[in-house]
Design a protein around this nucleic acid. Sequence first.
DNA 1: CGAGTAAGTTAGTGGCTACTCACTAACGAG
DNA 2: CTCGTTAGTGAGTAGCCACTAACTTACTCG
Lengths: 182, 182
Amino acid sequence: MPRMTAEERRESVIRAAMSEFARGGYHGTSTEAIARRVGVSQPYLFRLFPGKQAIFLAAANRCLEETRLLFEEACKDATSPDEANRMMAEAYLVDTDPEQLLFQMQIYVAVASAEAAGDHEFGRTIRESWLEFWDSVHLSLGADQEETTEFWAYGMLINTLLSLGFPADHRVWAGFHTTKPL
Amino acid sequence: MPRMTAEERRESVIRAAMSEFARGGYHGTSTEAIARRVGVSQPYLFRLFPGKQAIFLAAANRCLEETRLLFEEACKDATSPDEANRMMAEAYLVDTDPEQLLFQMQIYVAVASAEAAGDHEFGRTIRESWLEFWDSVHLSLGADQEETTEFWAYGMLINTLLSLGFPADHRVWAGFHTTKPL
DNA sequence: CGAGTAAGTTAGTGGCTACTCACTAACGAG
DNA sequence: CTCGTTAGTGAGTAGCCACTAACTTACTCG
């Protein structure tokens, strides 16, 4: 069993948590499952993070940040807003791990649940990360508010269809005027 | 304590389940919470339904059906696809209980979780209900696949922004070219 | 009235889960 | 070598959860 620094372990935990939370969501994922995937004892997680929610939060921020960076990378050579749009859309459908898209959905509902339970701090943090993401996309697309909204709208529909488990050749995917999904 | 027929009770359970599951999702909601809201003992739920998942499924199907009927009602007097679009969009933002939109999100991620856990029957049932919904909207809008897709895309973005808890006057809502949300 | 039936409860159980405490093993510096 | 620090574990605990079994209460109809 290789020894790691606490920081490296935290990194492993975040990766594992992203996968596990993507599948089960916040309440449907046990810290046990995350620890098993990391290859570490379950109580040790609580020395690396103050609690389960902190693990989820770290994973969520990482997920939003990574997708944002993917977009920024994808459209960096675009010469027009329209081309940026196409490049980012393709990156979303082709280069993004489906797990990350499912995890996005889990993040969104986790915020709603936390909010309903009276925890507003959690949502505040996620919204902040998410707005950075939104603004980054907005900037990449040029300055049109409505177009950015449309871009996000299609993105959220993709997440939903994926979450519902419709295969790539199903007719619900036929109405996209951009690239077909994987 | 008024006595009801089993069928009436099942109805109450479905209403209560829709509210509770909307807040907590499948794993974050206890049957205890549902029973408390109904005003009935928790074990009695298992005489009305075979299990927790059956309750969720009944509530989910009801949610999708009700939103579908709301749309059909909203656009029944429309004279053009464009007018139908506007009427349905407004109905979604104004007349739909936000709880129902949150519950929709919970349904979507619940399917993903069930699928990941090896339960494909659950998703199959939900997808069936959801396709009826999709087709109903498609029919109301006229025969254009791409326009239906766009309509759904905006709907899913609305669900997401609501789930994330952005207030109605936040700038992320500004890019919608239809009615402003409540 | 009385007896069957359907609505509803109380008490309980086994299993899981987040989190704690006390401990051990490896590494690095002097 | 040794001693302090840091990575990591094993054993537990209190609480919650879905679900069961056995019982009680109310309505209904002959």
